[in-house]
Structure formats: structure tokens, C-alpha cells
Nucleic acid binder design. Structure first.
Length: 273
DNA sequence: GAACCCCTGGTT
DNA sequence: AACCAGGGGTTC
């Protein structure tokens, strides 16, 4: 799915479009995508005005004038796209919000993993409550302390720590590989053996890469587009992700593709140790 | 941790 | 036909 830069790009692109819109009609095409159950979901949303869009980790939070929020999670293949006027529903549409002025917001999700949770009355998604620190807005000292502390009580690979949303909110498989390459740290290195100097470097490279990815409006490999349906551009700037067995752009040696914490993982055996 | 699950669709 | 995929929850 969309990782932090993609979800944030969706948020930024949608906010000026949906802010102030009043929900006239809710169409649920996939019942399991929403909470609470469809009847209550529809009843609670209809007539409400969208007053803000926020982001926490990979969650997009739609704030309503009732004080309620809808927590969208796009998972692997979800897209939230703004539409003007009546358009035929795209295949795999799971949810549509139709607004008073004829505009609408379509949730399209081929793999059907994405969710929209209205809370209250539903409880906030568990993953949202236990979310870790925001990479871009947490103070450096605080974030580094949290990373090192988490690393100290963990036996597994450093990549697993960077992907742990309860520690750090928003990195996914693409950016974890990119950050570790830029920092010169192998993804399978035990987290507790990563030195303070290396954490510092991981932190710096992570900030740079996330900001650059935001500048390029995210990475579009397959499904990802922003709220206007526009793809991002950062796929053209990836250093290792998706380049299995191709030459390293820094040293020319062949990149390695392997499996770490169950995820396909790219790294350079020369540049990363 | 690893293995499997939720799904569809693209690639080998 | 088999395997893979940007996520994450559950179960050993």
C-alpha cells in the first residue's frame, strides 16, 4: 500500500476538495470494509460535513462536524479518489460518499483489505491506538531514544523494527529498504547490534528520503494514485527497492534480493554492513 | 520470530 | 500453474 508519503500525498490532494463537503448519500459495496455495520455507518455519516483530513502513520482520518472521525486504511491496494459528477463505479469499488454538490469520493480496492472505521460508535482501530511515533514531526532526540530503546529489547532484524508501526508510524517495505540502503545498514542486522552512530544515520536518511518522496508525490508502482487520480514519481528515484539483482547505483555490485521478517528485501552486500 | 490469513491480479 | 505484491492481524 501506500506508505507515509503516499497517504500524506492523498491527504494533501484531497483536503481542499473535500473540506466543507456535506455527505448526502453513502453507498457501501463491500460490507466488511466498514465499521460499524452498514446500517449504522450510513445513518451516522449521512448529512455530516467533512471539516478536516488528518494523517497518523498510514491512517487517513476524516474529521466530521459531529465530532466523529472515519479512519481509512488503504492497506495494499486501496485508492481514495475524488470524482466530479455521476461516474460509473469502477470495478472493486468498496465505498462511495456522494456529496450535496454532485461531487463524490470513491474508495476502490482490488484486494479488499482496506477499511473505513467510524468512531465513535465503533472503537478506534487497535492499530491506531497503539501507533508509534511520527517520523517527520517527532523531535530527533525523542525519536532516536525510542528507536534505540525498542532495539535494545528486540532480538530480530533492524528492518522489522523500522516496519513495526507500534514503534515508528508510516514506514513500509519500500521505504524501509531505501532508508537502510542509504544508511549503509543491512536489513537483517540484529536491531540490538545497531550502533548509536548508525541510528543517527538511519534517522537522517529516513527524514531525507521521506521528504524527497513527498516532493515527488509518492511512489506509484501499481495501484497508488493520489486523491486526484494522479500517480507519484518517486519510483524513478528508488535506489534498491524493486531492483533485485540489478547493479548497485553506488558501487556497481549486484544487489541481493532475499526475505527478511517475511518481506521481500533488497540490499547491497557491499554498501551495507 | 515464522506461518498463515484476508483478496485480486500481474508476472514467471 | 505457481509465485509474487506497497499491510497487518492472528496463531502458534
Amino acid at each position: 500500500m501506500p506508505e507515509l508519503p503516499e497517504v500524506e500525498t492523498v491527504r494533501r490532494s484531497l483536503l481542499p476538495l473535500v473540506k466543507g463537503e456535506v455527505i448526502r448519500e453513502v453507498r457501501i459495496c463491500l460490507e466488511k470494509a466498514v465499521k460499524p455495520a452498514p446500517e449504522q455507518f450510513v445513518a451516522e455519516l449521512t448529512g455530516k460535513e467533512i471539516i478536516d483530513l488528518q494523517r497518523r502513520g498510514k491512517y487517513l482520518l476524516m474529521v466530521l462536524d459531529s465530532g466523529q472521525q472515519v479512519a481509512f486504511h488503504l492497506r495494499m491496494s486501496g485508492r481514495l479518489v475524488w470524482q466530479v459528477g455521476a461516474v460509473p463505479l469502477e470495478k472493486h469499488t468498496t465505498l462511495v460518499l456522494n456529496f450535496d454538490d454532485g461531487h463524490s469520493l470513491h474508495f476502490v480496492d482490488p484486494r479488499k483489505f482496506g477499511t473505513a472505521v467510524l468512531f465513535p460508535p465503533a472503537p478506534p482501530p487497535a492499530g491506531l491506538q497503539t501507533l508509534g511515533l511520527e517520523p517527520l514531526t517527532t523531535k530527533k532526540e525523542e525519536l532516536l531514544a525510542a528507536l534505540e530503546q525498542a532495539a535494545a529489547r528486540r532480538s530480530g532484524p533492524v528492518k522489522g523494527l523500522l516496519l513495526d508501526q507500534g514503534v515508528l508510524a508510516g514506514l513500509g517495505n519500500i521505504y524501509a529498504d531505501e532508508v537502510l540502503f542509504a544508511a549503509g545498514v543491512r536489513p537483517m542486522r540484529p536491531a540490538r547490534e545497531v550502533t548509536t552512530a548508525e541510528w543517527e544515520k538511519i534517522y537522517q536518511r529516513m527524514i531525507e528520503i521521506l521528504n524527497k518522496a513527498l516532493d515527488h508525490r509518492g511512489t506509484s508502482r501499481r495501484d497508488y494514485v493520489d486523491g486526484r487520480g494522479e500517480p507519484g514519481d518517486f519510483q524513478n528515484h528508488l535506489q534498491v527497492y524493486g531492483r533485485k539483482k540489478e547493479p548497485c547505483l553506488v558501487c556497481g555490485n549486484q544487489l541481493v534480493y532475499t526475505r527478511v521478517v517475511g518481506r521481500g528485501t533488497h540490499y547491497c552486500p557491499v554498501c551495507q554492513e
